[in-house]
Write a protein that binds this DNA or RNA. Sequence first.
DNA 1: AATGAATGAGTATTCATTCAT
DNA 2: CATGAATGAATACTCATTCAT
Lengths: 201, 201, 201, 201
Amino acid sequence: MPRQSRQDISKERKNQILDAATTVFAREGFHDARMEDIADESGLSKGALYLYYKSKDAIIAALLRRLFALELRGLRAVTEGGGGATERLLAMTAMFATDFDRMAFAMPVMLEFSAVAARQRSVRQYLGESLEKYAAVLSGLIQDGVASGEFRPVNVEGVAMTLTALGEGVVLLWVMVPRAMHLREQLEAALRLVLEGIGVR
Amino acid sequence: MPRQSRQDISKERKNQILDAATTVFAREGFHDARMEDIADESGLSKGALYLYYKSKDAIIAALLRRLFALELRGLRAVTEGGGGATERLLAMTAMFATDFDRMAFAMPVMLEFSAVAARQRSVRQYLGESLEKYAAVLSGLIQDGVASGEFRPVNVEGVAMTLTALGEGVVLLWVMVPRAMHLREQLEAALRLVLEGIGVR
Amino acid sequence: MPRQSRQDISKERKNQILDAATTVFAREGFHDARMEDIADESGLSKGALYLYYKSKDAIIAALLRRLFALELRGLRAVTEGGGGATERLLAMTAMFATDFDRMAFAMPVMLEFSAVAARQRSVRQYLGESLEKYAAVLSGLIQDGVASGEFRPVNVEGVAMTLTALGEGVVLLWVMVPRAMHLREQLEAALRLVLEGIGVR
Amino acid sequence: MPRQSRQDISKERKNQILDAATTVFAREGFHDARMEDIADESGLSKGALYLYYKSKDAIIAALLRRLFALELRGLRAVTEGGGGATERLLAMTAMFATDFDRMAFAMPVMLEFSAVAARQRSVRQYLGESLEKYAAVLSGLIQDGVASGEFRPVNVEGVAMTLTALGEGVVLLWVMVPRAMHLREQLEAALRLVLEGIGVR
DNA sequence: AATGAATGAGTATTCATTCAT
DNA sequence: CATGAATGAATACTCATTCAT
């Protein structure tokens, strides 16, 4: 029976900390969250946090990476799936909706990262790249659709940007007006609207 | 020549303070901005801030109201303008783009409000209502288009929501990836895509 | 009809201020009372206070003098009254009780001066002298009583001190346990007890 | 040899803080004393104060309790002592004098509590109860004296109040006119005067 | 004389971080 | 590795005082 290596324990502790940090940050915001809150939530001691992360900022930075790395997985899986472009876009949207539903509790943290991004180049760059990866995946799918004759010969990059924006925007509305919005339905409706626009008549 | 009344001075000071606060909050974020920074930026003294606002939070609350009240003006003007629905949607988009271009420096503050909204009911409610007003204006325009036969008989509310999301999303992308985005062009392209989707063939 | 001289107005204003200060200090204490509170209570403006007193401390100092000067009047009147020593002591006690009853609202201020006296030589000296004046008046009366054979040949100074302490102590108890104490009755009872002790049998 | 338990350390720290607070409050008064002064005086850091007391007010409240709890010890011990009522009253007075001599440095703080009591019900209540306990002890002793025929059948409660007031008053005079007063002698002289008054002839 | 807007020194409190155990 | 007591830098806010009007 293999024991946990030092590495494994460290990794486990770090995840424990980031999980706790997500919960606390979502509730209190980056600043109002106290290291002690994170310690309590994680079941570790205040001192222990510093064994795994150099500072509060280091936790935030690590969380940024973990949070926005996760989301890409779904996209990648879909890209490699079969079916027509429309079908794959719909599947991607469904996955997107599922991911965000699961991550709903972390939305305040994601939005706070957006806010920080607006004033810190490094964070902005990181998030910008993340968005561009999304857009790139979408570009690929749309390009496929154009190539296969499913879609009209549109400005592929532009449409990809529009769809990316749409995704972000719908999520934002979902957070802001949760009662009036079904994330999945709204996302699919929005996508279909655009598909109508780019579809062959 | 009438001198400034007490009222006028108070109003002027409050605007002075909110202007300074916007600049400082955009640079430092709500928390890291110090009252002294706002005082310096406004040309007033620290104590004077408290003559006009009870606390830092009161400044933030006043800023919330001022920031999101401004944006509605453009929309209202357009609603009452003449022309077809498509034409008016395009005009509205142009105005939207102009407003945001002018308010570019305040974008970090607006995004921070979004982040706060995600964890504070009162702010969320306020922003949610603001978004719903946008959506309502859009609903009206789309309804007009459907009535006039310009658009197909679509789910008016749904399309309005989609357009609202699109606007928010494009702005978000614009902030995150400013180099790759021309706000005005991207907004118009996105709108046209949807118009294609709902247009009569 | 004689107009008020500049002097009179100034004196009137100063009394207005000290009256207001007494009320406010009694309610809030020297420190928590704000100059603005005193201004409001006096019906003057904040700036006006500074026309008549150089500072908050100057108001407190003036109040100290006015407050402890007042109390001596009664004593003096009695000293010069007729009757035996016992009779005059009883009369003095009655007057003392009347004075304090009238000044009840100012008791918190008087006690605060005692507290300040305990750590500030100048105030301590002032109050000490005030107490010694009381004691001196009492000494005179007791001496009279001894001379007239009303009292036994006691340590006049010591008895005067005891009576002074008794007065102060009864007032203190009266403030602390107002329900259980009738100032006048308690004072008289205490005095009679001592008179028993020093009286000729 | 058992080490200090967490409890012990906490208790020690709290005493450390109250000791320092007493010294600093006596010198500066409650308001002018800065938390930093107390920290310096206690040898702890400013932050440490807050580990043991929630606020400056909490320190003051704790000090109130400690200061006026201490005084009762002597009284209780005497009550249970043997001897006649006169003898025990004299012993009690001696102990009272000794206690106050030892606590001389804290007198300004005690007087400040009296001043606060005059305007704050909660403090007034606490001090009032403390005084009533003194008076109750005295009542017991006097009652004993009356029962044993040592004293005349006097108004026991009234005499107890008088003696309590006498104690308070003598202490007040002692603070105000320290040079002219020997606390112990003056207290004993005052007590003897009253004893003469209530004694059987 | 009078006003009250403006100033800015002063301080209680919080909390990220350290480190002795 | 782990703990949590201790530290002290940082800052919102108050209010006595000033002074232009």
